[in-house]
């Protein structure tokens, strides 16, 4: 394991150097909140934040993205024939992504990169990206990532893990992609591996200990889908939900999308947009019939998808990385930790 030492005084200079080879993305303050955005010249990642309101999923899966376009002008040759737009997939790097968000992208990959179909927009963006993580030294009260196979210093899905050590960052080089980025940025001063790993370890255990939430999903896999689906607690759990959809948009593992066409003059575009299973329109048929017309059905869908369907389908754990965003931002305090524990401890009464 190679560890590179980055003096914070040389940070912005290195970032600027990396722009010659990479399009950069990172957390930035947008009015009062932190979100992930492209870092234009002169913009630098906000490295002191604890939680960004929106995750880094938009770097690979933009909130709205043109997937096809064409012309409706009958006088030109290829009218009414849709084509993929020329999107720039030159190397990009996302700086300061939190470990749980990087892990989330690995979970979402299971959906977009399959044996039968490959979503070219998601996969091309993914392959172009180098993931430079920032360990969480002081997890927030909402963070429960240690209980979802990741944790504040988790490395899955990252090419580099940066650890903030006051005057400097220690950068754990995890992949070749990571190494290439560091070279391109001029960050090449090796740290003394053993002691720096020890420093990192100490910060890691401190951070992990700070997470005190209790969630247990270990028994969910032994129950059948129908047992949980038909359990009596869903009405109670869903009671206060106002179906605002916030929990799905802020979630780094939610990937559902809508496809919509738009015409301007003679130009047409097909877009895909983030969608939410909390909206009744999500499943409404043309006839008006709606298989998930009731609020309870939609709340149940969200939790069953995250905590049961995904688990059964891929055998890769639950579809939640414990970032705590949905808990923090839900206006009525619906808490996935409680839902998970309720599902986990549920025993069907014969």
């Amino acid at each position: 394991m190679k560890v590179i030492k980055i003096d914070k005084n040389s940070w912005t200079k290195g970032i600027d150097k990396s722009r010659e080879a990479y399009k950069l993305f990172g957390p930035v303050k947008d009015k009062t909140i932190v979100i992930f955005k492209e870092l234009e010249q002169g913009m630098f990642p906000e490295m002191e934040y604890t939680d960004s309101v929106l995750s880094a999923k938009s770097v690979i899966f933009p909130q709205t993205e043109k997937i096809l376009g064409g012309s409706l002008d009958e006088s030109i040759e290829d009218h009414h024939i849709l084509k993929r737009p020329d999107t720039n997939y030159s190397p990009r790097a996302v700086l300061g992504i939190r470990p749980y968000d990087a892990k989330a992208i690995q979970l979402v990959k299971l959906n977009f990169d399959t044996e039968d179909y490959r979503d070219p927009y998601w996969c091309d963006a993914y392959e172009a990206t180098t993931f430079i993580g920032l360990a969480i030294n002081e997890p927030s009260a909402f963070d429960f990532s240690t209980l979802t196979d990741t944790g504040p210093f988790g490395e899955e899905g990252l090419d580099i893990l940066l650890v903030d050590c006051k005057e400097e960052y220690l950068a754990k080089v995890l992949t070749d992609k990571g190494e290439t980025f560091l070279k391109a940025s001029g960050f090449e001063e090796s740290a003394n591996t053993k002691p720096s790993l020890k420093t990192i370890k100490a910060l890691q255990s401190k951070a992990e200990k700070a997470i005190t939430s209790k969630i247990d999903s270990s028994k969910i896999k032994d129950k059948t889908i129908l047992e949980l689906y038909e359990a009596p607690f869903w009405d109670d759990l869903a009671f206060s939900c106002i179906n605002c959809g916030t929990c799905t948009y802020v979630c780094p593992t939610c990937w559902c999308f809508d496809i919509q066409d738009e015409t301007r003059g003679k130009t047409c575009s097909r877009f895909r947009n983030w969608d939410t299973c909390m909206d009744p329109l999500f499943t409404m048929h043309g006839s008006g019939h709606n298989p998930r017309g009731e609020k309870t059905q939609r709340v149940r869908q969200r939790f069953m998808h995250k905590l049961k369907y995904f688990l059964d389908k891929y055998d890769k754990g639950i579809m939640c990385v414990g970032c705590g965003r949905c808990v923090k931002h839900c206006p009525v305090n619906i808490d996935i930790r409680e839902v998970c524990n309720t599902m986990n401890s549920y025993e069907k009464q014969e």
């Binding site: 889908i225 999308f257 969608d275």
Partner: peptide, 11 residues
């Protein structure tokens, strides 16, 4: 093609 997530019955 199984990606947008809306047509599921269970898994």
């Amino acid at each position: 093609i199984g990606m947008c997530g809306r047509c599921n019955i269970g898994k």
